[in-house]
């Protein structure tokens, strides 16, 4: 029987630039960035004509569809415009990276190298989000952006008032505030491991299926991974959008919308 290796949890370091480790997931991140920069370059080259060509028309449709979709959740064009760069970039970057992770060669082209003290075949490319560093980075950006937008929209003291309530004035409110604070930190962890778990599991699944039956059998699972990649990118961006929206909503409105919060948050574990 052929040698069978499941990918390790941690991504593999291929080389070092100084003390900085270049890992296979980082290479994929750079490739995804290169693809997006190329698209941006071609969009720039259209000169944003009033009468669009095919490519510009396609990009316009995509941007408009994404914007209208986000706007249907925020229900405020001005706010949507403010949140759009972060949320849309999360969606587009994750989607690009997730789909690039299914390309042939990712995980299968290897070089010999050392990983956790052992000499192994290390894949040169590994799906970007099958690395906790990457998902954690974007989760941190998402949560930090939520706080920044919240402070920006409500002012520092009003926003901090969501978490810190004087216990002698409102003991229950004070306790709820602490829970909210913990929930903010928990968001980072849930964001990180939802995305990492899905993409890593997909990778393992494809490796196992390819090992068991190299021809034809992986095709439906690749379709499944395309779908999972899309859904995860969507879930990440939509949750970020919803959290930002909730963070920028005032204290009074916040309690009124806390039921909406529950109903928004509830479907996400089901989607994972």
């Amino acid at each position: 029987m052929a040698h069978f290796e499941t990918p390790p949890l941690a991504s593999e370091t291929l080389a070092h630039i100084g003390s900085f480790p270049v890992r296979n997931t980082l290479i994929m991140a750079w490739l995804a960035m290169a693809v997006l920069f190329l698209v941006a370059y071609f969009v720039r080259r259209t000169r944003y004509r009033e009468v669009p060509g095919r490519f510009q028309g396609f990009i316009e449709i995509m941007v408009e569809a994404l914007f209208n979709f986000f706007d249907s959740i925020v229900q405020d064009r001005k706010q949507t415009k403010r949140f759009f760069p972060i949320v849309a970039t999360i969606f587009i970057f994750l989607l690009t990276a997730n789909w690039m992770g299914i390309l042939p060669g990712v995980g299968s082209i290897t070089i010999l190298g050392e990983h956790e003290g052992k000499i192994l075949n290390l894949p040169i490319f590994r799906s970007m989000n099958a690395d906790v560093n990457m998902t954690l980075a974007i989760a941190i950006i998402s949560v930090v952006a939520t706080q920044i937008y919240g402070v920006w929209a409500l002012g520092f003291f009003s926003y901090a008032g969501k978490f810190f309530v004087a216990p002698w004035k409102d003991p229950i409110g004070s306790f709820v505030g602490i829970l909210e604070l913990i929930a903010e930190c928990a968001k980072i962890i849930s964001f990180t491991f939802r995305l990492f778990g899905n993409i890593f599991a997909g990778e393992v699944l494809l490796v196992v299926i390819s090992f068991l039956m190299p021809y034809l059998a992986p095709i439906p699972f690749m379709g499944l991974e395309l779908f999972v990649g899309f859904i995860q990118a969507l879930v990440f961006s939509l949750l970020t959008l919803v959290f930002i929206k909730m963070g920028t909503t005032g204290h009074g409105e916040h309690h009124a919308s806390s039921h909406a919060h529950a109903s928004h948050a509830a479907p996400s574990p089901a989607l994972t």
Binding site: L9, A10, S11, S19, F20, P21, R23, L26, A29, W30, M33, L36, F37, V39, A40, Y41, V43, R44, Y48, I59, E60, V63, E64, F84, P85, I86, A88, T89, I92, F93, D131, V132, N133, M134, L136, A137, I138, I140, I141
Partner: peptide, 29 residues
């Protein structure tokens, strides 16, 4: 495999992507 350097690199990567897409795609389109 969490490594602070990588984490920061990836945050920077994301911000660069957001900047480039925002400047060349979102804003003008």
């Amino acid at each position: 495999g969490i490594q602070w350097g990588l984490l920061i690199a990836q945050i920077v990567n994301f911000l660069i992507v957001a900047g480039v897409l925002g400047f060349f795609i979102y804003k003008p389109i």
